[in-house]
Design a protein around this nucleic acid. Structure first.
Length: 596
RNA sequence: GGUCCCGUAGCUCAGUUGGAUAGAGCAACAGCCUUCUAAGCUGUGGGUCGCGCGUUCGAAUCGCGCCGGGAUCACCA
């Protein structure tokens, strides 16, 4: 890579000029700011102690050395302590002809190492998916694509939370007031039908609490003593005892939820290689804890409960087994982590889970290490922020959620309206038009979510529909469609930019070079996105590329260019831009239309 | 209260291994379609980077202290 060459030669320059060795890492190099002439900039302030000269002189001397020793450097300029290096047009031309038509550009070859296990989605079967899940699903799917592009094998797993008190609440409400409704009889999607009863339970439960409080009970007691919650707990006990009626209803209702989820996943374009169910894994981890107790890694208390003492690490004591010997959430996660390790022997395990569980995952990792499970060192929590509404946090129980299916419907409808207003659906058949509306609507939604740094909370205002102009998915899709249209015309006109390389008889114009430079940065964006587990790196990259390409497109004629060499060069740039946009969007799980 | 995260333009967001004059989009205003798709392009206005102190040749970026917002700290999951 050219960056490494420059850094290495820079060290050589310092050695040669000032007789002192420096490491490449100690030299500051960055991309030159766009208002300033140059491609890479070396900041020489840190070298002044060695050179014992002014910033300007130091930069000049190093610049001279680099220019004489690196053929790719055409010229340089110095502003204060900044040495701006200009690479030759030949360098950019070589890059374009070497990588422009290579199918694997930007992606690493598969390394054939142990896979990365990536858990995401992990829904509860008591309610439908909402906007928070959408963020989770999109992040998880995109991260899997990014890791694959970095040469990793990825196993996408989903751990479905299909048991527990919250499921029993939906079941109880259905038993009491369901009246035998089914998805078929109501025409409702299964997960939505179940969600309806979850909300209903909460409503009735709150009524009971109010009544109890009115009789003089404290709110806290009322929450524990309300008949409905006692009944729900009883159902949980019967479920654990394999009571036939309860298990049968549980299976039926979970089946409805799965049918609903499958539809939503399919539409959202996400999938999984393996699905775990908590009903099958919730008893795991107990043995792990007992072993830890025996070895002395964990502590038992008089009442029989078992704890991990993390006070030395700055955390608290954490309960792992209750005094009655039953498990808690953490116990189960310890067990599933080990199960997953045994199943895949992965090089890393990534959990895409909201930042409200930061503490949980911190503890999970520490306890596993305490238990001597070295694989825990390779556990990563991709912690993402909440999606907030203008009125605050979403709450399923209170029905203040943006439903995933509804939102996708709205995006489709907006895409249809906008496209028809622009008259762009006129020549399409109905199926073609629907496919396009879906591509654009989902593209807008996915990009809206993924362009934001995962770790930050983000705001979604349902009153304002997601934009299709500016820094948006449709903007990028549009750029791609425009490129395809141009390339199709060029092919028809007999231009052969793939096999015939432009000769660069003319110097590159600024916009030509700017666009090629963005294309050059794709490889780095993929690496950084993978290393930081951050799809927004790709989203911001591809926006920047599309923006620069649009300037190029607006300012420079391609097919209208009379100089054939120029036309071929611009077609090569155009073609590569289209391909890199497509590949970038693929990393985000966003489709790109041939026309729109 | 302890721990962690966040605070950048009216709004939504970029920008941190410390670098040059802090950037986009939306919204507002003014231009550009007889020429490759105007979901586009160009321009104008808009900032004490929450506040203060410190480290440094240099701080949105690092440290300390405040202010404001959020999460978490259950024999819940």
């Amino acid at each position: 890579m050219i960056e490494e060459i420059i850094l290495a030669k820079c060290c050589e320059a310092v050695q040669h000029l000032y007789g002192q060795e420096v490491s490449p890492g100690s030299i500051g190099m960055e991309k030159t700011k766009k208002e300033i002439t140059g491609d890479f900039t070396i900041v020489v302030f840190s070298l002044l102690k060695i050179s014992r000269k002014s910033p300007e002189d130091t930069a000049m001397e190093i610049g001279d050395y680099l220019k004489n020793n690196i053929p790719e450097i055409a010229e340089f300029n110095v502003i204060k302590g900044f040495l701006n290096l200009v690479l030759s047009d030949r360098f950019w031309g070589d890059f374009l002809s070497r990588e422009g038509t290579r199918t694997g550009y930007g992606f690493r070859e598969n390394r054939h190492e142990a896979p990365v296990v990536l858990e995401y989605s992990s829904p509860n079967t008591n309610k439908p998916l909402h906007l928070g899940h959408i963020r989770n699903n999109l992040l998880g799917f995109s991260l899997a694509e990014i890791l694959k592009a970095n040469g990793h094998d990825v196993v996408k797993v989903n751990l479905v939370n299909d048991r527990g008190i919250h499921i029993c609440k939906s079941m109880l409400a259905y038993m009491n007031w369901g009246d035998g409704e089914t998805p078929q009889s109501t025409g409702m999607k299964g997960d939505h039908l179940i969600g309806k009863y979850y909300v209903l339970f909460d409503k009735k439960y709150k009524e009971e609490i109010r009544e109890l409080v009115a009789t003089g009970m404290t709110a806290e007691d009322a929450e524990k003593k309300a008949p409905l919650i006692l009944e729900a707990q009883d159902i949980l006990r019967r479920w654990e005892a394999r009571d036939e009626a309860v298990v049968s209803l549980w299976k039926t209702m979970n089946g409805w939820a799965y049918e609903g989820f499958d539809q939503t996943y399919l539409r959202l374009g996400v999938d999984f290689d393996k699905v775990y169910h908590e009903s099958e894994t919730y008893l795991l981890g107990k043995q792990l804890v007992m072993d830890g107790l025996k070895s002395g890694a964990l502590v038992g208390k008089e009442d029989g409960s078992v704890w991990a003492d993390l006070r030395e690490e700055g955390l608290d004591e954490k309960l792992l087994l209750r005094s009655d010997g039953t498990s808690v959430y953490m116990t189960q996660d310890l067990g599933t982590a080990e199960l997953r390790n045994d199943d895949f022997h992965p090089s890393a395990m990534i959990y895409v889970v909201g930042n409200e569980q930061n503490y949980h995952f911190d503890v999970l990792k520490r306890v596993l290490l305490k238990l001597g499970k070295d694989f825990a060192a390779n556990i990563h929590h991709l912690s993402y922020g909440m999606v907030e509404l203008p009125m605050g946090k979403m709450k399923s129980r209170e029905g203040t959620v943006v439903d995933a299916d509804d939102l996708m419907d709205e995006m489709f409808a907006t895409a249809e309206t906008t496209t028809r207003e622009l008259g762009k659906a006129d020549e399409l058949s109905q199926p073609e038009a629907n496919k396009l509306f879906n591509t654009i609507g989902l593209g807008a939604l996915k990009y809206f979510i993924l362009k934001v740094d995962p770790k930050k909370n983000m705001l979604f205002d349902p009153a304002e529909s997601i934009d299709f102009n500016g820094n948006t998915g449709p903007f990028i899709q549009y750029t791609y469609a425009r490129i395809q249209s141009l390339l199709a015309r060029a092919g028809g006109a007999g231009y052969d930019w793939k096999s015939r390389r432009a000769d660069l008889l003319n110097p590159l114009l600024p916009l030509e070079k700017e666009t090629i430079k963005r294309l050059f940065l794709f490889e780095e964006a993929v690496v950084v996105a993978g290393k930081e587990m951050n799809p927004s790196v790709i989203a911001n990259y591809v926006y920047d590329l599309a923006k620069v390409y649009n300037q190029f497109y607006q300012e420079l004629p391609v097919l209208k260019e009379e100089n054939v060499e120029k036309a071929l060069l611009r077609l090569a740039v155009t073609s590569m831009a289209g391909e890199v946009i497509r590949r970038s969007m693929k990393l985000l799980g966003i489709e790109v239309p041939a026309r729109m």
